[in-house]
């Protein structure tokens, strides 16, 4: 399972980076989304996958029965997803504004702030 997840995460990272290397800002935004999602999966996998053992403490016990799934990475991933949601919302607004102002979605046309002159 971990191997499969590792391959999946690798593919997601690769496709995210591939999309970011394209010239369109929309693809850039999609690439960023894939990148943040693969990072979420990475947290989830790196912390260890336990199936079918929710960390629920039954009445009268002080600890869930071993082995149980670690709840912390899930909380971390949830937080990261929420943050990613906020960032994504902003990125979409930004992409739209850039498209409206610059009149193109080509990143190569957005180099007026890079050069050494002016």
């Amino acid at each position: 399972m971990e191997t499969l997840m590792a391959i999946l995460i690798g593919c997601l990272f690769a496709s995210g980076i591939y999309l970011m290397l394209r010239r369109s800002i929309v693809k850039l935004a999609i690439g960023l989304v894939l990148l943040s999602q693969s990072a979420n999966l990475l947290i989830f996998t790196a912390a260890g996958l336990t199936r079918g053992n929710p960390p629920l403490v039954s009445a009268g016990e002080s600890m869930p029965p071993l082995p149980y799934a670690d709840p912390l990475p899930q909380a971390l991933v949830l937080t990261a997803i929420v943050i990613g949601f906020g960032v994504l919302a902003f990125t979409l607004v930004l992409v739209k504004r850039v498209y409206q102002t610059v009149g193109t979605d080509d990143l190569d046309e957005m180099r007026s702030t890079d050069g050494f002159k002016d």
């Binding site: 906020g86 919302a89 902003f90 979409l92 607004v93 739209k96 409206q100």
Partner: peptide
């Protein structure tokens, strides 16, 4: 507030 700020801003134009 945050969700509607984004949705309404995006759909207003």
């Amino acid at each position: 507030g945050v969700t509607l700020l984004v949705i309404l801003t995006l759909s207003e134009e």
